[in-house]
């Protein structure tokens, strides 16, 4: 059996991303505003993992459906973004030893947004290279 039997469509990807964002926002709201048992809070905190897993599965399926040059472009984007993400985390880790970084700006919840940004920047660079 093929792992990705259906060629993924943008619609599914957008739906999965929307489900991911919605469950994330809902989980944040519940964890901030509603008092629950600790085990229930952990369950709510882990709830966005399900749509995230679906989103990742669709992205991988999408990349597998691309042609060889398009796959190379994504690989080059990852090769750019991944070390840059590590560099960012290392640098923040070292800076935290020197200065107190405000957690309302530099917590995990805020830093993640740079990771897709690095990826899209790498994608633009690689795309341009083969134009």
């Amino acid at each position: 059996m093929k792992m990705f039997p259906v060629k993924p469509r943008w619609g599914y990807l957008i739906l999965a991303a929307a489900a991911w964002v919605l469950t994330y926002l809902a989980a944040r709201f519940v964890l901030k505003e509603i008092q629950l048992d600790p085990w229930l809070r952990v369950t709510v905190a882990l709830l966005p993992v399900l749509p995230t897993a679906l989103f990742i599965w669709l992205v991988v399926a999408g990349i597998r459906s691309l042609d060889e040059l398009e796959r190379r472009i994504h690989l080059e984007a990852l090769a750019f973004a991944y070390p840059l993400a590590i560099l960012l985390l290392w640098t923040l880790g070292l800076l935290q030893l020197v200065v107190q970084l405000p957690p309302e700006d530099w917590s995990y919840r805020h830093v993640w947004v740079y990771l897709p940004l690095f990826y899209f920047f790498g994608l633009a660079l690689a795309w341009r290279r083969y134009q």
């Binding site: 042609d67 040059l69 398009e70 134009q131």
Partner: peptide
């Protein structure tokens, strides 16, 4: 069965 960009990149010898 490839993208037009791929054909173009091959023709221009970028890929």
């Amino acid at each position: 069965g490839v993208s037009r960009q791929t054909v173009n990149a091959i023709e221009t010898e970028k890929y």
